[in-house]
């Protein structure tokens, strides 16, 4: 186990995440995203550090992480392209698109190109069916795709023309929460007691004998 795999900045953000929940374990998935933002995937070193941060064994972190499609315990390309083939996209040519993508990228679904630029995956419904067929690149949507527009997308990605729109794989949310929790337990206890008393006195005043 390597202590300090996460950068100081990532570690600080992970600790802020832990503080947002009633139990540190809740921060597990958000911190996995954070680790993927740093490395592109979940390295064994990151998993060990996440386990320490949320008070679990590394095996438990792996057990959770491997359940979820977006968390990768193996290296992936800089761009993960997920092509939806579920019913709404299938009715609008998704399998033909996926086949084209495999030919274009010279990689089978589930694989990564030799240069490490693209990982291609077949996705389940991505909830953007109004512009089917769709794909995501690092979880940014591209809709109304045709083989030709897919080729353009790949060329744009390779040339860096979409760098502003599509960050490297793992970077999910570029907007940071400002500040931690504002409501301390003491405030809540006081407030709720006052509210309960107010309700009780109102009930009494209205002569409601049921309360």
């Amino acid at each position: 186990m390597t202590i300090g795999h996460l950068s100081d900045e990532a570690r600080r953000r992970a600790e802020e995440l832990v503080a947002l929940y009633p139990h540190p374990r809740s921060a597990l998935i958000p911190i996995c995203h954070l680790a993927q933002e740093q490395d592109g995937w979940l390295t064994p070193e990151a998993i060990a550090e996440i386990a320490e941060l949320v008070g679990l064994a590394p095996a438990e972190v792996v057990g959770t992480a491997t359940f979820y499609d977006m968390l990768h315990t193996e290296p992936v390309g800089r761009y993960v392209i997920t092509v939806c083939t579920n019913i709404a996209c299938m009715l609008r040519g998704a399998y033909e698109l996926l086949e084209h993508a495999e030919d274009r990228l010279e990689v089978r679904s589930g694989g990564t190109t030799a240069d490490g630029t693209f990982t291609l995956e077949e996705a389940e419904c991505l909830a953007d069916c109004g512009v089917a067929p769709v794909c995501q690149v690092n979880h940014r949507f591209f809709g109304n795709l045709s083989p030709a527009s897919f080729d353009t997308l790949v060329e744009d990605l390779r040339a860096g023309r979409l760098d502003g729109e599509v960050p490297p794989h793992g970077t999910l949310v570029r907007v940071r929460r400002q500040g931690g929790l504002r409501v301390d337990p003491e405030t809540v206890t006081t407030e709720r007691r006052q509210m309960a008393e107010a309700i009780a006195s109102r009930a009494e005043a209205s002569g409601d004998s049921q309360t």
């Binding site: 921060a27 998935i29 359940f67 979820y68």
Partner: peptide, 28 residues
């Protein structure tokens, strides 16, 4: 007073089932 926390999922249809969602929110 109220705090709101935005929590990202990680790709699993079943987490739309409310008790699975709670498990997921507990880091499982």
């Amino acid at each position: 007073s109220l705090d709101v926390v935005v929590h990202p999922g990680a790709g699993a249809y079943i987490c739309g089932e409310e008790t699975a969602l709670l498990e997921s929110l507990e880091g499982k």
